[in-house]
Amino acid sequence: MIMKKSMLIAAMFAAGVAFAAPLQASNLTPVGIEIQEGKVKIEPDTLPDPVKTSIANDEEVKSLTITEAWQWTLPDGSFQFEVVFDNGTEEKLSKKYDKDGNEIKD
């Protein structure tokens, strides 16, 4: 009797899995935030003032247009930022900064 119940439960489970409809990407609603590798895309004008000041004082990038800005949270709760600049080439120039505007060199 117990064996029949076990087999019946297993069969019902297998049937349920077989008939479950897969989630289709076309049913998802696009959101205004893009996430990539734990980074969150932000508007360039929302960068912290120290980062904006650092960019304004950097001869290499101060005259370039910011095309993208990304923010991510570190394990200690602090933030880092990646700023992508249009330097007129196919490969854009990218720099990373901490919340205080200090450039992070890889």
Results as ranks from 00 to 15, higher is better:
Gly38Gln: 11
Ala14Gly: 04
Ala18Trp: 04
Ala25Glu: 07
Ala11Lys: 00
Ile35Cys: 14
Thr89Gly: 14
Ala69Met: 03
Ser63Val: 11
Asp100Val: 02
Met1His: 13
Ala21Trp: 10
Val61Asn: 04
Glu60Ala: 15
Ile55Phe: 01
Ser26Glu: 09
Gly101Lys: 04
Phe13Leu: 15
Ser54Trp: 06
Phe85Glu: 00
Glu59Tyr: 08
Gln24Cys: 09
Gly88Val: 05
Ile2Cys: 05
Gln80Cys: 08
Trp70Gly: 03
Asn102Val: 09
Glu59His: 10
Tyr97Lys: 03
Ser63Tyr: 10
Met1Lys: 12
Lys95Leu: 15
Met1Asn: 11
Phe79Asp: 00
Lys95Tyr: 11
Asp98Ser: 07
Ala25Asp: 09
Ile2His: 10
Trp70Thr: 02
Asn87Pro: 01
Lys96Gln: 09
Thr67Lys: 08
Val31Leu: 14
Ala69Thr: 01
Gly16Phe: 02
Glu34Ile: 14
Trp70Gln: 01
Ala69His: 00
Gly88Asn: 06
Ile42Pro: 03
Leu8Glu: 04
Asp100Cys: 00
Gln36Lys: 13
Trp70Glu: 01
Glu90Lys: 13
Lys105Trp: 11
Pro44Asp: 00
Asn57Met: 13
Ile42Arg: 02
Glu59Lys: 09
Gly101Arg: 07
Leu74Glu: 13
Gln36Leu: 10
Leu23Ser: 08
Glu34Leu: 15
Ser78Gly: 10
Val31Lys: 15
Gln36His: 10
Val83Pro: 00
Lys96Pro: 00
Pro50Trp: 08
Phe79Trp: 03
Phe81Ile: 03
Ala69Tyr: 01
Asp106Gly: 15
Ile2Gln: 10
Leu23Val: 13
Asp106Leu: 15
Ser26Leu: 10
Ala21Cys: 10
Ile33Ser: 06
Phe81Arg: 01
Val31Gly: 11
Ile9Asp: 02
Glu34Tyr: 14
Ile55Met: 01
Ser6Pro: 00
Lys39Asn: 06
Ile104Trp: 00
Ser54Asn: 04
Leu47Asn: 00
Glu37Gln: 07
Glu43Cys: 09
Lys95Arg: 13
Glu43Tyr: 15
Met7Asp: 10
Ala18Asn: 05
Gly32Thr: 13
Asp58Ser: 01
Glu82Ser: 06
Asn57Gly: 12
Ile33His: 07
Trp70His: 04
Ile9Val: 13
Ala56Ser: 11
Ala10Tyr: 04
Trp72Met: 10
Ala11Ile: 06
Phe19Leu: 14
Glu82Gln: 08
Asn27Gln: 07
Lys52Tyr: 01
Asp49His: 08
Ala15Gly: 09
Ala56Glu: 06
Tyr97Gly: 04
Val84Pro: 00
Leu23Gln: 08
Ala10Glu: 02
Ile35Glu: 13
Gln80Arg: 13
Ser26Phe: 12
Ser94Leu: 11
Thr29Lys: 08
Gln36Gly: 05
Leu74Ala: 08
Ser54Pro: 03
Asp49Met: 12
Val51His: 03
Leu47Glu: 01
Pro75Glu: 08
Lys4Cys: 12
Lys62Ala: 02
Glu34Pro: 07
Lys52Phe: 07
Phe79Ser: 05
Ala15Gln: 07
Thr73Tyr: 07
Thr53Ser: 14
Pro22Glu: 12
Met7Ala: 11
Gln24Ile: 10
Val51Ser: 00
Leu93Thr: 05
